[in-house]
Design a protein around this nucleic acid. Structure first.
Ligand code: SF4
Ligand code: SF4
Lengths: 160, 160
DNA sequence: ATTATTATAGATCTTTATTGTCCATAATAA
DNA sequence: TTATTATGGACAATAAAGATCTATAATAAT
């Protein structure tokens, strides 16, 4: 299990947009050059990011992309979920098996929406783990990375 | 990004073994029947679990599988990593891109083994998140699920 | 020792997901 | 109006997951 390359690209693209906030929009050409990915492929990713409200896009001369909201309001989780989707990390495929009887509470079969507390014991652990992951990714914003990069940078300057 | 079905099968197989500890070995036939998976496919999974020292296998009459160590010493992470592997959740593919300069410390390119503290800023976040996930999965053992299932069960009996 | 039983390893196939390209179209600012 | 830029659909290549079959090796019971 790994994050896809697209997630990698999306994160770096967003970070670059965050870094170029003051300037004009950033076109797909520039972006693709900096990330080292083809324009066609990257544009698919940017399109998704726009559909999910992470970036704004404007066509035409001097068009391009910009962040749809301040970088401190864009979390890693936000970006990752655009690409990876929002399904659960663990989805049981055999809830009709014999074992299920032992491990699941009554009513746990139709567990998707309404009874979060009634998940089976396996899902309880797996979903718990996923929550830990999400929590951490929610706590880290694009801005926090930008800040740290700037800190490092100025520290380097002081050294010299 | 999702856990594979194989991980699902592996977890359930191990749980069943833990549940049948007192009795004899559990053959692939019984196991496959209970999980609702083909024998051939499941045997591949069991083989991996054996190679990684999670279960013991004995061929021949009355052979089968049993846990290689007590269920309270088998964590969810143990089982999951057998199937999903041990690569990092996030592996950067373009550390030669222009962006890399900004985000990575010096020496961060050859980051794999020796400089865990020097990872780049993106990896720092992503690896941190992975650690959260792993920590949680490490804290939950097969036995803990068994215990809880038993608790529920006896609670149900009391009700009746 | 023989035999029936069981796990193992290899080859192979299908299906699904990821990664990637190309092109025609729509939108926009100059 | 036009040059420019993003968008969406179709498509292809590759890789990974899911699954099956078969021949072989190991073992316990006889
Ligand atoms: S116990 Fe949970 S994970 Fe297992 S089969 Fe039932 S629903 Fe699925
Ligand atoms: S900054 Fe980190 S994630 Fe980004 S390219 Fe460099 S090594 Fe990869």
């Amino acid at each position: 299990m790994q994050f896809s390359k697209s997630t990698d690209y999306a994160l770096h693209a967003i970070i670059h947009l965050g870094h170029s906030q003051r300037c004009n929009n950033v076109g797909i050409r520039e972006l693709s050059g900096i990330l080292g990915v083809s324009e066609s492929y990257l544009s698919k990713i940017m399109s998704k990011l726009r559909q999910d409200g992470i970036v704004r896009a404007v066509p035409g001369v001097n068009g391009g992309y910009e962040l749809a909201r301040p970088a401190d309001q864009i979390t890693f989780l936000d970006v990752i979920q655009v690409i990876e989707g929002r399904q659960q990390l663990f989805e049981c495929s055999n809830s009709s098996s014999q074992q299920h009887q032992l491990l699941a509470e009554e009513g746990a079969v139709q567990r998707d929406q309404k009874y979060p507390g009634k998940a089976c014991l396996v899902e309880k652990v797996m979903n718990g783990a996923e929550q830990q992951l999400h929590q951490y990714l929610r706590e880290h914003t694009i801005q926090s990375v930008l800040d740290e990069a700037f800190k490092r940078c100025s520290h380097d300057v002081n050294k010299k």
